[in-house]
């Protein structure tokens, strides 16, 4: 297990392509943010002596907003950065950061090139599941036949038929949701550089604000897009949202968190990225 104690470290916000730009901003707990440059790359860091940990949601939220704000500033100064996960710390001083940048330069540069001029957007599509359920009950012949038989059956049989009815209804509803989500993924994916289906994955949340979690989510996607592609995605979402039973949430631009690859130690010869 990795030793977590360290005397000196650099909290890493992101890595960006190097340029002449400077960055004047503060990070977590108002720490002054600095740039460490090497091998055509810029690491955006602040000096730290421990990891950031707290059980206060308010504090964590402030840190996360500060983290994001630094990455945003870096994006404005240098173009699309490679954002790092919250609480990523390089052990050691600036020299350690420089040798890490040097060792990883080829891969970091490749990833930055692939992400250049592109930003991440999140799309969440909410549907009226009750209405879809009602419609299936009204239109599916098998369900109607089951309902008729159920009404004429004795108590024991009625129980079984009710079970079969509910099972079929749930299955049909799930099939419909998946089909509509897949169709959306196809259409959105056709307009964007890349699309990731976030599926039913629950979000890491902090009970923030009034965001309503009690909605029926049809699909959730992360989309990587250029500015032109973002326009096209927005137009397509207008079409999707024209359906009165559908609500669309469209957020961004975010740094390409979802499209940032995992980087291993750089010693794996079989890595074909």
């Amino acid at each position: 297990m990795t030793e977590t104690a360290f005397d000196e470290g650099r909290y890493l916000y992101c890595v960006a392509p190097d340029g002449d730009e400077s960055l004047s901003t503060t990070g977590l707990d108002d720490e002054p943010v600095r740039l460490v440059r090497e091998a055509g790359l810029t690491a955006v860091v602040h000096d730290c002596g421990s990891l950031y940990d707290s059980d206060s949601a308010t504090r964590i939220r402030r840190w996360i907003l500060a983290h994001q704000s630094v990455v945003d500033d870096a994006g404005e100064a240098f173009g699309t950065p490679l954002p790092f996960q919250f609480d990523t710390v390089i052990r050691g001083d600036d020299d350690a950061v420089r040798s890490w940048l040097d060792a990883e330069s080829e891969r970091l540069t490749d990833h930055l090139d692939a992400l250049a001029e592109r930003w991440e957007y999140r799309v969440e599509v909410v549907w009226d599941e009750d209405a879809a359920r009602d419609e299936l009950e009204a239109t599916d012949a098998d369900l109607r036949a089951l309902a008729e038989r159920r009404n004429e059956a004795d108590e024991g049989t009625r129980f079984l038929l009710t079970k079969r009815y509910e099972t079929r209804l749930d299955r049909l509803l799930d099939e419909q949701r998946r089909a509509e989500a897949a169709d959306l993924a196809d259409r959105l994916g056709g307009e964007a550089t890349e699309l990731v289906d976030l599926g039913d994955r629950s979000r890491a949340g902090l009970d923030i604000g009034d965001a309503d979690e009690n909605v029926d989510v049809l699909a959730r996607f992360a989309v990587l897009a250029t500015d032109d592609e973002r326009e096209a995605v927005g137009l397509l979402l207008d079409d999707v949202a024209a359906d009165p039973g559908i609500e669309v949430r469209f957020t961004g631009p975010w740094p390409p968190y979802t499209f940032t690859p995992e980087l291993d130690g750089g010693t794996d010869a079989s890595d074909e990225v």
């Binding site: 890595v15 490679l82 790092f84 052990r91 995992e262 130690g265």
Partner: peptide, 11 residues
């Protein structure tokens, strides 16, 4: 976000 697995990095 990028996750690095290198000896020098703690995440």
């Amino acid at each position: 976000g990028a996750v690095v697995e290198a000896d020098v990095v703690i995440t």
